[in-house]
Design a protein around this nucleic acid. Sequence first.
DNA 1: GCCGTTTTCGGCCCGACTGTTTTCAGTCG
Length: 577
Amino acid sequence: MDNKDVAQILSEIALLLELSGENPFKIRAYGEGARIIEALDMPVAELVRSGALSQIKGIGKTLSLQITQLIQDGSVPLHQELRAAFPEGVREMLRVPGLGPKKVKDLFEKLGIKSIGELEYACHENRLITLPGFGPKSQEKILQGIEQFKKFQGRHLFGGVYPLASEILEQINKHPKTLRASLAGSLRRRMETVKDMDLVSESEHPEELMRFFTSLPIVDQILSTGPTKSSVLLDTGLQADLRVVGPKQFPYALHHFTGSKEHHTVLRARAKALGFKLNEYGLFKGEELIPCNNEADIYRFLVLLYIPPELREDWGEIEAAENHTLPVLVEEKDIQGAFHFHTHFSDGTPTLSQWVQAADQAGLKYLGISDHSQSAAYAGGLKPDQLEKQRAEIALLNQKQNRVHLFWGIESDILPDGSLDYSDKELAQFDFVIASVHSRFNMTEAEMTARIIRAIENPCTTMLGHPTGRLLLARDPYPVDMNRVLEAAAHHSVILELNANSHRLDLDWRLMKKAKELGLKIAINPDAHHLDGLEDIAYGVGIARKGWLSREDVFNCLYVDQVQTYFRNLKNTSVGK
DNA sequence: GCCGTTTTCGGCCCGACTGTTTTCAGTCG
């Protein structure tokens, strides 16, 4: 049982305690405990062994005992009892928008509804109307919520929402009554998936702006609307919320609606301890508003360095802001080039010269071409005789132009036994080799970990591609001990890919801080199969920032000559490896 | 359930909007 398993059980206990109607602070203690364990940079089992567990802030006597028992026995009675009390389907009902623990509890206990399916049926039979606290409107809302849930399971890819959100923001910004406007919420924090779209704007005529927003052509339905806050359902099925505030309130509102909830909980407690009150309308000392022109001012009054939105997850950023140890985050302009581009040689569309032209327009100084290797038959992997043809074409292009340097690489499949997909002699020809798992995902964790580590140990491996193989909202990561993978990569100087494709965003940002601490380099790779894949690099930068990376941590912030030197040195040292 | 330069007991972040209510609970962010 690793940290993730422990955290998962603790947070499920928190959820189930909510359904039981427990003391909210007890619920929070379990939720906090889950977060603390998930963010640990060492195995919780070690803390159990050394007895240091209860010394961690937020883990008291009871949680310490529960976690110890989880590590030792693999389960705790409290969890088992709660699970027995509430069937799986009841827990799932909490994911329907508009349903919280109190209502789910009522539905389960008073109407015997045990799943979303049963709930839908009960709504159609008008059985909710008679329940105290419910009425025709709430029954209708629940039905809509179920539709919503069935369609998207409540979450959307960042990359699927961001362009549309930017467009709506632009329209709000263009409105004559708008003074300022910004994206907020998880979009602004660059979460890999988002539940909805949050916007904040400043205006002296909020009602006009609100009318404008709720009547945008893309709005399918108005969920709620008030003088300062409205929610609409867009015709894409996504919910969008706009908050309008008066002049001078903007920084506080933007900060509030950017979140995260966890970040704010800690921040407000801090504000209180310093004699302030922080809410969406301002930072107050007694009744007096403390004037802030921007978010940085708010943090300054709380005796903290400015915390960029991407870091606001209560993931250690408040302590770092207090101790002046916040990283200087990587920016898009720091990116010099990128790796992991597919061409028409395998399953990509662009030709080599099309890539050069597109990269030049995007201001990139180099590209790393890496088509699929021979066993990836489904993707037109390159047979050894095609390799020479591609090598020659790249050499010619590099000769003919010097705007964008092409590095010649390959995305080699990691075969089930951990070997790579060409002979060592063939692999040695490339400037770089990305090793990736594309098959046999159903191994045990031990097998998969050994397989990947063997590929990392291969002296020809330069980078590890999409390290966990996840597809966001579609496929879970394959089972793999990422702590061991990161350590092996650090030991063998293998660069880790941050696959910037919005379906992957893999390496997960939650693992990146650890990677950084191990001294690993991260390459922000678009894994591009089409020309517009270049735009994904920006998503990767967002995730890298979320993972606390500075430009020194990002391999493709190196200049082209530095990359050339790096690859050359690698080849010289790997001979004896 | 956790915590302690107000505290070992009594707090624990804060407000908008909705629906079902005649003053408020539930949900959400």
